[in-house]
């Protein structure tokens, strides 16, 4: 059986993209992708349906114009600069939750760095079983499978490592002053732009794998947020004032994440702490801590090398490893 039109489409895109200024004769492309002119035409038509744009000259030669901001694995791959994060991509239009599928795939042995991504989630989850609003095509809803060999007790810090990598990437690629809100959120001007949900499969002394889920609000307009999120959430588009390319954002994030994760695997959280503290929005502020039904007010002073938030109350330093923190 011949190759699928979809595979030929990906090959021909590669050829056209390598020289975007040049017009290519369709029979020449057909020869290069080892297919027939008719199949190449079918593939081109398919690509147009999927949002690719081409230009034809008067002799029906074709030139690549633009690609859609869609999460096709080959399209993500085209933007990626990482070594192993995102080098295996599982992409769905709709999933109940990318974390749930990633967890199942990891259980079946999916390699480290595998990402699961969806255009929308129907049951996107946040921390403490809260929902995560994941509308189609407006955000990046993705989960990364990791297999670190660190003791399980160190792994919850991966949330803040991820938040830090994302804040760095948003700063580097979009010049946004993103901040980290311990333990797992990314804020811009006090509004939530991204959240992280880390889930762990571990035995007593050994982690089997970790799934880091990331939800980034990218191209929502104010009216795209449901009423209960208005005044709490923001998007990259709202902050930059223009449409943001999701694939470039994803690639920038995964590159920053890979760099920090490699360091984290080697030496734990300690070498990353200066970068994390620099972008932390809690340090130096008075915060309200809610743990179960107990609420205390204290000043956030530091993040410890094991990832705990250190707060000071009446001259006494307390370690916070869980709970809800709000700046007051």
């Amino acid at each position: 059986m011949g190759r699928k039109v979809g595979d030929i489409a990906i090959d021909l895109l590669g050829i056209l993209r390598r020289s975007p200024a040049k017009y290519h004769a369709i029979p020449d492309i057909a020869a290069k992708v080892e297919s027939r002119t008719r199949i190449v035409n079918d593939a081109l038509r398919g690509l147009v349906v999927w949002g690719y744009r081409f230009e034809f000259d008067s002799s029906s030669r074709v030139r690549f114009v633009s690609a859609p901001d869609s999460i096709f694995p080959h399209e993500i791959d085209h933007h990626l600069k990482t070594k192993f994060i995102g080098r295996n991509i599982i992409s769905y239009f709709s999933l109940p939750s990318t974390n749930t599928l990633a967890f199942n795939l990891a259980t079946e042995g999916a390699p480290e760095g595998t990402i699961v991504i969806a255009e929308k989630q129907t049951e996107g989850r946040g921390r403490l079983g809260r929902g995560w609003f994941s509308p189609p095509k407006l955000g990046l809803w993705t989960s990364i499978i990791l297999r670190p060999t660190l003791p399980p007790s160190e792994l919850p810090s991966l949330s803040i490592v991820t938040a830090s990598a994302l804040a760095e990437a948003l700063h580097a690629s979009l010049k946004l002053d993103a901040e980290i809100k311990w333990p797992n959120d990314c804020l811009i001007d006090g509004l939530k732009v991204a959240g992280i949900l880390t889930e762990l499969s571990a035995e007593l002394d050994k982690a089997n794998f970790v799934v880091v889920g990331v939800g980034i609000n990218v191209n929502q307009s104010a009216r795209d947020f449901p009423p209960h999120l208005r005044g709490k959430a923001t998007s990259l588009k709202l902050e930059t004032g223009s449409q943001v390319n999701r694939l470039e954002t994803l690639a920038a994030f995964l590159l920053a994440f890979e760099k920090m994760y490699v360091e984290f695997k080697k030496s734990g959280l300690r070498p990353l702490l200066p970068a994390i503290k620099k972008r932390s929005c809690l340090l130096g502020k008075n915060v309200r801590l809610k743990q179960g039904n107990k609420t205390i007010i204290a000043k956030a002073v530091d993040i410890s090398p094991d990832g705990a938030l250190l707060v000071k109350r009446r001259g006494e330093v307390l370690r916070v490893t869980a709970g809800e923190v709000t700046v007051i």
Binding site: G6, A9, F72, H74, F93
Partner: peptide, 9 residues
């Protein structure tokens, strides 16, 4: 329906 490795349920 799979289109260029993107799975559509």
């Amino acid at each position: 329906i799979e289109a260029m490795k993107l799975m559509n349920e």
